Computed example of a mutant assay.
Amino acid sequence: MAAAPHPETELFTESHWSPEAHGRITELCQGAFAGVPALRSVSHYSNGIIDFVVRRGDCPPLSSLVTERGEDIANESLPGSRLLLCTQDLNALMRPLGTGELMRVVLANARGGLWGGRVKAGEYLSALTDTPGGMPAADEAMNGLVSAIRTRVHHLPDELPGGLAGPPEPLPEHKERLRIDFGTATAGHDGLSEMRLRALWGGHVNSLDLQYAAFYRDWKLVCAGDVFENPELGPRFLDVSVRSRRTGYRDLAQNLRGHLARLTDALRLVVQPPADRLVLDVQEGAVFVTWLSPRDYVLGVTLDQRQVGHAESRLHELADALRELTTTEGN
């Protein structure tokens, strides 16, 4: 069933949709499109079942591989449905880390991408953008939408998806207790000397936002460094030890390769892969993956939910420095 309740969007609903149950949430979803031309569509799910889709008007079909005439709600919600299935598996994979439930996933590249998020247990949203460079704006809009539904409809606390906005805080002035371990992929690359890598990690990994980073080439560990042993981070390890957390992030990096195929299948329904950005935002921080090439990537972690956005920005700076270093090495 389709309706036209908003001049900029189209609304597609399933038969169980009702204004009493879904009306306020639908209005908030429609409002998220204001001033965000990159946002293509937003889908709402209850217990894994699609409730409605809001789509920007006059959108072309996503893909001839997906589109079925007259099945707008199924066509538009399919990429998000696949992303949410992946999210369930990733949530189970991350739960032993003790940082809470997975509440936001971003999978993107320069051409666009997918966003998936948990409003509360059993209630989920997904969003698509097929606008080049559009994911940052779509991501910000969706983070705000989730917070609005939680606080204004369900009267629940804001979980700060994406972290706090605003300028980053100054880094601590004291010397960080950086631990860095080197993997087998370091050997044989003169440009990736341990001294250079240690300097890079010392300039980016810190106790404020980006507390862990690991670099992988051809899926093999080059190095991993963290400041988990800094005293101010001690309360973060009451339930999960520093050693277990380090092991957990290495295991996560290894297991991500197996999930990447399904994530890529979901992305392909919206834009041409590969992805160059993956965000796994949990209740206490986030895990980020930035790809340097299809087989080389940097994985970063923050344990502070307020600093999620700033930590990802710092990881991107580290990734840029590694690109420059590896380019120099190749020349």
Rank of each mutant, 00 (worst) to 15 (best):
S64L: 12
P157E: 03
L84R: 15
N255G: 11
T264W: 02
L83M: 06
L102D: 09
S313G: 09
T302A: 02
G57R: 15
V282C: 07
L278K: 08
R152V: 10
L238C: 11
A187G: 07
R314C: 01
G35L: 14
P231M: 05
R277W: 01
E159L: 15
G162Y: 04
L267Y: 09
L65Y: 10
A34E: 07
L280K: 03
T327W: 15
W219Y: 14
E194Y: 01
R82N: 06
L178Q: 05
S241V: 12
Q211S: 09
N109H: 04
E76K: 11
F52L: 10
V105R: 06
V270L: 07
V270N: 03
T13F: 13
L197A: 03
V222G: 08
V205D: 05
A137E: 08
V308I: 14
R268T: 15
L192P: 06
H154K: 11
A141H: 01
A34I: 14
L107A: 06
H154S: 07
H6S: 09
A214Q: 08
A321L: 01
G35T: 15
R246V: 01
I73V: 11
W115K: 06
V308G: 02
F52K: 05
R250K: 03
T131D: 09
K175L: 09
R152F: 09
P60M: 13
L84I: 14
Q254N: 03
F215W: 12
V222I: 10
E284P: 00
M1N: 15
S193H: 03
L39G: 05
N230S: 14
S15C: 09
N255I: 06
G80P: 01
V54R: 04
G100L: 01
M142V: 07
V146D: 01
T302M: 01
D276Y: 12
L160D: 11
R262I: 03
K175D: 11
L83K: 10
D218F: 11
L238Q: 06
V53I: 03
I50C: 09
L233G: 02
S81K: 10
R118C: 15
I180Q: 00
S193G: 02
A253I: 00
V287A: 02
L197Q: 00
A110N: 07
G162R: 05
H16S: 12
P157S: 02
D218P: 04
T184Q: 13
P170M: 10
E329S: 07
R306L: 08
A148I: 06
L318C: 04
I149H: 12
R217A: 08
L238H: 12
